[in-house]
Design a protein around this nucleic acid. Structure first.
Lengths: 244, 244
DNA sequence: CGTTGCTTTGAACTAGCTCAAGACCTGTGG
DNA sequence: CCACAGGTCTTGAGCTAGTTCAAAGCAACG
């Protein structure tokens, strides 16, 4: 087994059945490993994509600019994610995929994905499922942006990232990477940087989380979850993670 | 060819290649036609779904309630749509699917979908593509809700529905069904009913659209599109529709 | 050590909210 | 045919959550 696909396997096992054959099919795909500096685009809005990108190390985010130049951050990605898996079927990007911090990624050619999924319908189904969970996450975010206050929105992204990091790493309640600038937090929650700053401070003052050096630690999970109105069902993990 | 699948075929042809074999595979699936009264749920949040639903007549919408009871409308559906196609892979619903007005739908058992797509990988790919466009639409809505003013948001949903109705019907610039209450418009755009009311009035006073008897007519397409900052690329139609 | 980027804070403003009342429909039963 | 009830839409008044702009503080880095 390649080292590169460990996080991907952990994630796929969390959302469905992953057999040895499927793992082998994945490992048979050639990977082109690449380093990216913070702010670099993996692929940009309007481009025709020829490969999808497995995140190995660091974090990526997807974002979309309005014609007026406002940015909405659409999702945040951690190792094991393939944020532009959809580009296998929708070649032309409708948003940007950007390095949030310095990253290592592995590019996988669409041709190779095609071979793998045509050889294994079960793998095709699992990857389809993965893209559907991506869509479910958009629904959850849309609801959070449209229907909750900014403080709850900030809490929500912390909850989601906590649960997702927990799935691939072994946090044991400890800190997880949260390297977003307040500018970026603002563009996730659809609010101004001033509000983002206030909200992050408020969460810390209330003793719900601590933020330091690009890492977040959840101090009071029940309170944070309640404030965020966080319901992790949309992540479609088969098994609840043990969370303290 | 069955009468029921006409709109579905038109829509699939708009987003990809639909061969005669694929049409036959679709028509081979048994349909259970059902009438729904306005407000009835096709399927509800948390339920396990055993079939997906092809909309024949009327309109449906998907919505998600926050724990506090606020509703976000996630998408609006017109005949030919299969709004819960994703439930084939994600059995447990994370939102409601509701009749916006009295409807006719055709239920398709997940088993039958499974047979059809396993017999035809090309059909599987096209349906996968369809669910990815669904996700792209969520991204566009999220951006509109997070980053634009309410007036632009209302204009945006009018633009989108106009283009989508145009794809399946032959509007020729004429009126299309727009039966949403202002309450519902408010929950689409993530704003209060008061703002929804004001915005709808403003669009009419500016001469961009007219709304009457549950129908909308676009009077000044370029102005409406510009106000909405509407970029239809996210719908992934292969060919531009001729629009006046 | 000076530049650059990120964060905090304050002050003034405004878009959007809630609440509430009234107008307007439309269907129903007497 | 009228009366009334229920839903939908409009309008206004007062409030608040959010905005922009601007300046100052901090920290990291070459």
């Amino acid at each position: 087994m390649k080292a590169e696909t460990g996080n991907l396997f952990r994630k796929l096992e969390a959302i469905g059945e992953l057999t040895e054959e499927m793992k082998a099919a994945i490992d048979a795909m050639p990977l082109q490993v690449k380093s990216l500096a913070k702010g670099e685009h993996v692929v940009s809005d309007g481009e025709i994509s020829r490969h999808s990108c497995l995140l190995l190390e660091g974090m990526l985010h997807r974002s979309k600019l309005t014609p007026q130049g406002n940015r909405q951050i659409l999702s945040i990605h951690i190792p094991g994610d393939v944020p532009d898996l959809h580009s296998y079927h929708l070649k032309k990007m409708d948003h940007d995929l950007v390095a949030t911090v310095d990253c290592q990624v592995a590019l996988i050619a669409h041709e190779d994905i095609g071979q793998a999924i045509h050889a294994s319908p079960a793998l095709s189904d699992l990857l389809w499922r993965e893209t559907l969970i991506d869509a479910a996450t958009f629904r959850a975010w849309m609801t959070m942006i449209g229907q909750t206050q900014t403080l709850a929105r900030v809490a929500h992204i912390l909850c989601e990232l906590y649960v997702r990091w927990e799935m691939i790493g072994d946090l044991e309640g400890g800190p997880f990477p949260f390297p977003l600038s307040q500018d970026e937090v603002a563009d996730v929650i659809g609010a101004s940087i001033v509000l983002a700053s206030h909200s992050l401070q408020a969460l810390q003052q209330r003793g719900l989380v601590s933020l330091e050096g690009g890492k977040a630690t959840v101090l009071d999970w029940p309170a944070l979850r309640d404030l965020a109105q966080f319901e992790p069902a949309y992540l479609y993990y088969l098994h609840e993670t043990r969370r303290r």
